[in-house]
Amino acid sequence: MEMVLDVYKQPYDPLYPVVCMDESPKQLIAETRIPIPATPGQLARYDYEYSLKGTCIIFMANEPLVGKRMVRITTNRKRVDWARFLEEIANQYKNAERIMLVMDNLNTHEPGSFYHAFNPEKAKALLDRFEFVYTPKHGSWLNMAEIELRVLTTQCLDRRIDTITKVRSEVAAWEMKRNNNNSKINWRFTNEKARIKLLRLYPTIEE
């Protein structure tokens, strides 16, 4: 935890950008009956029944100090999907010496995944572009990409959407608007505050 918080307090450096990455499933849900549109004095009405149309995966990467994020929607969350998303991240930071990537400990989030997606030369070249910063187990709340995913859900995806094409269209519009607004995250949790609020997590040392 303290290693992650140390990364967050670093000043902005375009050569070593701090990027947070996370992923989340989204159910595709269709209406079984045509909704009744809103009228004066009456809200729109939807039937409680719905039809599941599968799921899609939302990959989110954001650079909190700049107010920039990148979202990709896929059908799977396998090693190959994660590695290809990181390739996209690397392409967004071609001038960076090394990308500090904050993420959780999901089993696909490890160097070997590059070798499932690319030949060894390309896999090693991509791997060298990143420095992985893992959040602790049960500490994924330290990942600021989770904040972005919650904002995305609240502002864009908190409703029934039945196709991955529609999800991609809606998310692309949200991403463009939020990036144009340079929406940043003001992270205030520090090691000093952690040692007070999360004192129970620290070992007790007997003199």
Rank of each mutant, 00 (worst) to 15 (best):
E97W: 03
C56D: 00
V80P: 01
R69H: 11
R79L: 13
I29D: 10
D81A: 07
C56M: 05
C56N: 00
E31K: 00
A90F: 15
I57H: 11
G41D: 01
P40E: 10
I89S: 13
Y50E: 03
A90Y: 14
Y50M: 00
Y50V: 00
N76A: 12
K53V: 00
I29K: 05
P40N: 05
D47Y: 06
D47F: 05
K94T: 09
A96H: 05
S24V: 04
E49T: 12
T39I: 10
V66Q: 07
V66A: 10
R33C: 10
E97C: 06
Y46W: 04
R69T: 04
A44W: 14
I89K: 10
E31F: 09
R69N: 13
R79C: 13
R72T: 10
G54H: 04
T39A: 10
E23I: 08
P64W: 02
Y93W: 07
Y93I: 06
A96T: 04
E97T: 12
I29E: 11
N62H: 13
V80N: 04
R45S: 02
L43C: 03
C56P: 00
Q42G: 00
I34S: 07
L86Q: 12
F85G: 08
L43V: 01
Q92K: 11
E49L: 12
I89V: 12
D47C: 09
I34P: 07
D81T: 14
F85S: 09
F85M: 05
L52H: 11
N91C: 09
I57V: 07
I89L: 03
P35W: 03
G54T: 05
L52C: 09
S24L: 02
R69K: 06
E63Y: 00
I29T: 14
A38Y: 11
L86K: 15
N91S: 09
S51I: 03
G54Y: 05
N76M: 11
T55N: 08
V71A: 08
S51P: 04
M70A: 05
L65N: 08
T32W: 06
R77N: 15
E87Y: 15
